[in-house]
Design a protein around this nucleic acid. Sequence first.
DNA 1: GTCTATATAGTGATAGAC
DNA 2: GTCTATCACTATATAGAC
Lengths: 189, 189
Amino acid sequence: MNRATRKKEILSKAAKLFKKRGYSAVTMRDLADELNIKAASLYNHISSKQEILATIIIDVAENFTNGMQQIKNQPLTTLEKLKKIILLHIDLTVKSPDAMACLNNDWMHLEEKLPYFVQMREDYEENFRSILKEGIAQGEIANRDPEIMLFSLLSTLRTLYIWYTKKDGVDAKTLKEQMPATLLNGIRI
Amino acid sequence: MNRATRKKEILSKAAKLFKKRGYSAVTMRDLADELNIKAASLYNHISSKQEILATIIIDVAENFTNGMQQIKNQPLTTLEKLKKIILLHIDLTVKSPDAMACLNNDWMHLEEKLPYFVQMREDYEENFRSILKEGIAQGEIANRDPEIMLFSLLSTLRTLYIWYTKKDGVDAKTLKEQMPATLLNGIRI
DNA sequence: GTCTATATAGTGATAGAC
DNA sequence: GTCTATCACTATATAGAC
């Protein structure tokens, strides 16, 4: 198997295992078994277990950062921006549910890339918070504690991967159709 | 220090460490350091690392089960029942945020107690789902996919501990006053 | 009730043959 | 590109002294 394809396969299987048991509980031997090779062979493709984790998480995190950058300065109402943010979360979750789980559960095991990740996450939350406050100021959304609205929205969006990948869970189409209304009705005037 | 107090202290410090880094990443030496004793001394109070995890998680899980049992059969409207469920989550989170984190993030590392836990969690979700469906049938809440409403509510309630323990986070009083309205407005007619 | 010492079984990662 | 063999280290847990 060629080098690039094998590496992608390693990252994909690793994300799947990390989602199921967490980064610390997955050994290089577990990962190798999943690929039907020996643990030592993994090191022909990656340099460390840590590199695997960082690659998985930073890739998704940068997708969120880029998505938010595109949304925040568009000439849209607050509710339109929030709808786009909700759809961004749904799209990224549907595209890589395992990587979303890693980002949510294993980010604290990042080493070299930890400060970079934390900065991206803080910026993302701050942009989200600004949009909510803007909506309150303009009378578009309810005048309640923006911190409560923020965490209610983010909690749901960040854990979408749990419900999306569950048997008898919800499919992508239903999510895109019903999620924005369910979440936005909770905060709109 | 007397035996019962020491054991409680071990469970408390363990929950705090598990919340921060996850069960698998915390060693018995880490835990012992936190208590200023040696790892071997822990075994005079507990029989295994696994026992610590199970004690922490099952205790909170049984609190949820008991709370739900008391709520579901009371002569209340759906919205009143949902408000009581929301307050149950807030109360348990404020009481033991670290144990809530363990329950959410480390339940899959339970061994002997895993089936018991999974059954409790499934029953809890099923009771929650029934109450939502009852509300839709009686025209009290919006006629949307109950699965989406369920996961939106549960995601927020289950991750309350993240925001409650955060610096600049939300305090218990604000939560109890604003959380029910924010969440229920999203689903009520 | 805590200690030191240790048993036993992994852990991530490297060297070098094929 | 994968293998076997192995290194240096760390994990949970026990035995027995104090």
